[in-house]
């Protein structure tokens, strides 16, 4: 049994004719870095939302540690899997950068001291310290993405799912993100990257999945 199992999963959006994903069987472990590629509209984002239980498959089943996702609540899933949306604006909802990062930590029931310490470390690592008290939506696009990733990483989930994480990041910040991902992987956690940034996934991913015509193709390289 893998960390996440997709069993005969098909999906189409309500009111649309086209089946986006067709009868997919896929196992994802909470180890290593899996890259999901595919052209625009091939269903990459849809697949990622199915992994999180944000979307429920039309047929088939998604299991997390053997337990069907449909029997779990989003906060329960969020404890195990971290998700960074394609558009970071949508997951930023606090009044300051600092609060954005501490929000999830407070919900995990950590003590105020622990929260403070962790927030500081994360802010430092992602070079966001000077913005700690800024209104998050006033940041530049690249900074917002960094913040969104930082806020989810702070929760230390077992598996991290990133939808187009490098869009809007400059080469230096891309490297910073990649190095952090390597650290996460080294601490026996898994990462799933959805991306068409071939340079990036070629460097960091260990497993390659390509979506084509609603089917999954396992590949050897980017």
């Amino acid at each position: 049994m893998a960390f996440i199992d997709l069993i005969n999963v098909s999906y189409k959006y309500p009111g649309q004719q086209r089946t986006i994903l067709h009868d997919i069987n896929l196992s994802i472990w909470n180890r290593g870095c899996t890259a999901v590629t595919g052209s625009n509209g091939s269903g990459k984002t849809t697949l990622s939302k199915l992994l999180l239980g944000i979307l429920t498959p039309v047929t088939g089943l998604v299991k997390l540690n053997g337990q069907p996702l449909t029997s779990m609540t989003l906060p329960q899933i969020g404890r195990r899997i971290g998700y960074v949306f394609q558009n970071p604006d949508r997951q930023i909802f606090c009044a300051t950068v600092e609060e954005e990062i501490s929000f999830g930590l407070q919900n995990q029931g950590l003590s105020p001291d622990q929260v403070l310490q962790k927030v500081k470390a994360i802010l430092d690592y992602f070079e966001l310290t000077r913005y700690a008290h800024t209104f998050p939506l006033a940041l530049s696009a690249g900074e917002k993405r960094r913040l969104a990733i930082a806020a989810v990483l702070a929760l230390e989930p077992d598996l991290l799912v990133l939808d187009e994480p490098t869009a809007g990041l400059d080469p230096y910040r891309k490297r910073l993100l990649g190095d952090y991902l390597e650290k996460i992987i080294a601490s026996h956690k898994g990462v799933v990257i959805i991306s068409h940034d071939h340079q990036f996934i070629a460097r960091y991913a260990t497993r390659f999945i390509r979506l084509k015509n609603g089917q999954v193709v396992e590949g050897q390289g980017a």
Binding site: L74, P75, G78, Y83, R90, Q91, F93, Q108, A151, L155
Partner: peptide
């Protein structure tokens, strides 16, 4: 749609709105 996504993000970070 944006509000819907944001509410999902909030829940994934540990708030059970229900």
């Amino acid at each position: 749609e944006e509000i819907k996504d944001t509410l999902i993000a909030v829940q994934l970070r540990g708030v059970d709105l229900k």
